[in-house]
Write a protein that binds this DNA or RNA. Structure first.
Lengths: 123, 123
DNA sequence: CTGAATCCGTTTTGATACTG
DNA sequence: CAGTATCAAAACGGATTCAG
């Protein structure tokens, strides 16, 4: 066989690679998941913060800003004291919940394979 | 309702987060995919390089080293001239191909949602 | 051909303290 | 409570050089 031809021409802007970009942002998919688990797909900042052990306030805000710019969530500010802000899934955001739940579902069903992974989470 | 309890206690070492680590490495899942598409789950360095437009030799080698340490691939050196090295999926690696194909399949079926994403790939 | 080892700059992530 | 500023560390990634 002539192995010369790169048949797996994965263009840099192909669909799978675009999806990967969502998962390559450390917190984006987890935020979408938490929002999805809430009635109305909405949660306040503090809820998100407490639902994601390990995230810092800065990364949460930063990631939410990026997600808003991408059209995945919408931001709602209530003019109250003390301040209250909540974030909701947009219709686009709701679509991306699907592959995320698919992936997380596989993970829960295959925890044993993950235990076999020789690499521990960072530490 | 008392909203005080963080019911979505996502421990930092839970299964979904462990899977995310694979996808948060830019090339890991793509390498697994290319290997899976080959008979025997094996490919030589040059094939991988040509199959993944945009990857550099350095990142390929580095990622493959990490994957070997994680137990996802095995490295085989042929004592020939010129040198020949190929990489194969381990049984563990084959398991992780499943969620990857799941995700890529969703991406291919939902390219329209990806087009709607306001954020373009980097450039 | 494979791939290790530099140097270097960019991007991402994160801890901490601070403002309204 | 929500968000910002600052500083630091880590990951990422290209270019180059060297070796088997």
């Amino acid at each position: 066989m002539e192995p010369g031809s790169p048949d797996h021409e994965w263009r840099e802007d192909c669909a799978p690679r675009r999806v990967l970009e969502i998962f390559s942002s450390k917190w984006t998919s987890m935020i979408l998941h938490v929002l999805q688990s809430r009635l109305g797909g909405t949660a306040r900042t503090g809820v998100l913060l407490r639902s994601l052990p390990g995230i810092s306030k800065k990364m949460l805000t930063q990631t939410l800003r990026d997600m808003e710019a991408s059209g995945l969530v919408s931001r709602h500010v209530h003019g109250t004291v003390p301040p209250a802000v909540d974030y909701s899934l947009t219709p686009l955001g709701r679509r991306f919940v699907e592959p995320i739940e698919l992936l997380y579902g596989w993970a829960r069903d295959n925890a044993d394979a993950l235990d076999a992974l020789a690499v521990r989470p960072k530490g």
